[in-house]
Design a protein around this nucleic acid. Structure first.
Lengths: 131, 131, 131, 131
DNA sequence: GTGGTCTAGACCACC
DNA sequence: GTGGTCTAGACCACG
């Protein structure tokens, strides 16, 4: 479990935790059935209050990503991978729709948007190649 | 002044107002020298708290987009167009960079992103054709 | 807003609050658009910690029963009545299914169950007639 | 001993075990004088912690359903059948009263409740016929 | 004024 | 040991 909290991020800590776990499940680095660290343990690792971790876990439980094994801890749900993948795609798509709406409303042309996207993707691929 | 406030948007209202005014200046629908509505007047039109409009205007002043005409109100600064255009492009680009970063990190492929963008743009153009 | 908290109830306080508000919306005594009491106000009335009320409100928000009016408070969502009614029916039905399953498994006959239900309903109607 | 533990059930595991044994006694599938499996044996069968089984047995002892045969294990008490039958009826009746109370409070009509019950019973009987 | 986040620390039931 | 609930109180952004 390699989670990183960025206190500078506008997103609240509990959301950063929840999102990173979703991504870990979606990308397969956290497999169904596997246990997540205990609330107290993760809180210690991230140097945050246990309540904050508990809130992240609670949200994931209500989304059906985590299952409670009473007295033992929380584990990744059997069907969590599919859920997380769908959620991930939906989430990115929604934000992209919103962004495009504002861009077009601000009279940025579709061509400009597409070239922007291509530039950014190329920048990312270059960085990955280097690293 | 065609401003539309979306209370469901995550962005605070004062920011929505400020941004839309920037966009209006950048796209030429609000020309340098032109007066913007008074705080009270705009607050009435948008049905928001005057404090909220005042805050939006304050931010725009500090950015040099609006100039105070003492006793008369606020007008669009002479060099505002260029500033707003740059800011508009920067702002959209930054958000797109952030979104692409998250998407790639979540293992959404560049191809998927490009086709998503194309879909969304087509949907928008269809809506405009219809309306 | 007449909410009553029963500390003897096994259900947690935040859930009692959330459920009673759902019922109030479903039965029409809390109309869409109406504001619910502020977190601090309701916490004072019920003599509980504001965090507890906030948690109840948060759950209702995530269910789409309450809408945030930023800086002003929370209001009942426009489509909350329908949601609450469905949820209410679903919730009761699920619990009944569970109960019947256990009863039949314990070899209580369907006839016994039906007569039990009728008895209980009659008892309730008698109480209402008296009061 | 056909016990089935549902980890998804809200009721604690030790309670599920205790209840199912009560039901088995009430319905005659576990006769007075008969020995119940040892704590370790049952824990192995159900794949639960021995402490959990021990707690269930402890509760049943304090209710007089099980008798300790020192050095041998636990057996079903001679007068357990009657006790369990009463308890079974009381328990189901109480939960039904509670559920009906909430349903009526939420303005679900008695007729709806009765037809719900009939539906559920029919569904169960169909499932049994098939299996 | 409003809700939202976070911390700190207590107590509980369950395994 | 585990998670869950609740309290107390601080700080923040928003209107």
């Amino acid at each position: 479990m390699f989670l990183q909290i960025d206190p500078g991020d506008a997103a609240p800590i509990y959301e950063q935790i929840a999102r990173q776990i979703q991504f870990a499940v979606a990308s397969g680095s956290l497999a169904p059935g596997e246990m997540v660290p205990s609330v107290r343990e993760l809180a210690r690792q991230l140097a945050v209050n246990p309540n904050t971790v508990a809130r992240a876990y609670r949200e994931l439980q209500s989304q059906g990503v985590l299952d409670a094994q009473r007295g033992l801890g929380l584990s990744v749900a059997a069907d969590a991978v599919e859920k997380c993948r769908q959620q991930r795609a939906t989430w990115i798509r929604e934000r992209l729709i919103h962004l495009v709406g504002e861009a077009l409303h601000a009279k940025v042309s579709p061509r400009q948007l597409q070239s922007m996207l291509q530039d950014i993707i190329q920048t990312h691929s270059r960085q990955e190649t280097q690293s």
